[in-house]
Simulated scan of single mutants.
Amino acid sequence: MKNIFIDFYVKVNFTPKFVKKYAEIGKVMSGAFKEFIDEVGSGAFPTKEHTYKIDPEVVEKLKQSLE
Score class of each variant (00 low, 15 high):
50 H>K: 11
65 S>P: 01
52 Y>S: 06
65 S>G: 01
38 D>Q: 06
53 K>P: 01
63 K>Y: 06
36 F>S: 06
2 K>Y: 08
44 A>T: 00
29 M>L: 14
50 H>P: 03
24 E>G: 05
58 V>W: 01
59 V>P: 03
13 N>Y: 06
57 E>P: 04
48 K>E: 05
37 I>M: 10
30 S>C: 11
4 I>C: 04
31 G>N: 11
44 A>N: 07
26 G>K: 12
8 F>R: 13
25 I>N: 11
39 E>M: 12
15 T>A: 12
53 K>S: 05
5 F>L: 14
47 T>N: 04
22 Y>F: 15
18 F>G: 02
8 F>Y: 15
64 Q>D: 13
15 T>W: 09
24 E>K: 06
28 V>K: 14
34 K>S: 09
36 F>H: 05
36 F>G: 03
67 E>A: 07
26 G>N: 11
36 F>A: 10
5 F>D: 05
48 K>Q: 02
65 S>H: 00
21 K>N: 06
65 S>I: 00
28 V>A: 13
1 M>E: 15
4 I>H: 08
45 F>E: 07
35 E>A: 14
4 I>F: 12
5 F>T: 13
55 D>H: 02
27 K>V: 15
27 K>W: 04
20 K>C: 02
22 Y>S: 09
38 D>L: 08
37 I>P: 02
31 G>R: 07
9 Y>L: 15
42 S>C: 08
44 A>F: 00
61 K>I: 05
39 E>L: 14
16 P>A: 07
60 E>F: 01
47 T>R: 06
19 V>S: 07
51 T>Q: 05
11 K>T: 13
35 E>F: 09
66 L>A: 02
23 A>W: 03
16 P>D: 09
28 V>H: 10
39 E>P: 03
33 F>C: 11
31 G>C: 04
33 F>Y: 12
49 E>Y: 07
66 L>I: 01
11 K>I: 05
54 I>G: 01
30 S>P: 05
10 V>E: 15
21 K>V: 08
26 G>A: 08
3 N>L: 12
35 E>S: 14
63 K>F: 04
29 M>T: 13
6 I>M: 10
1 M>A: 14
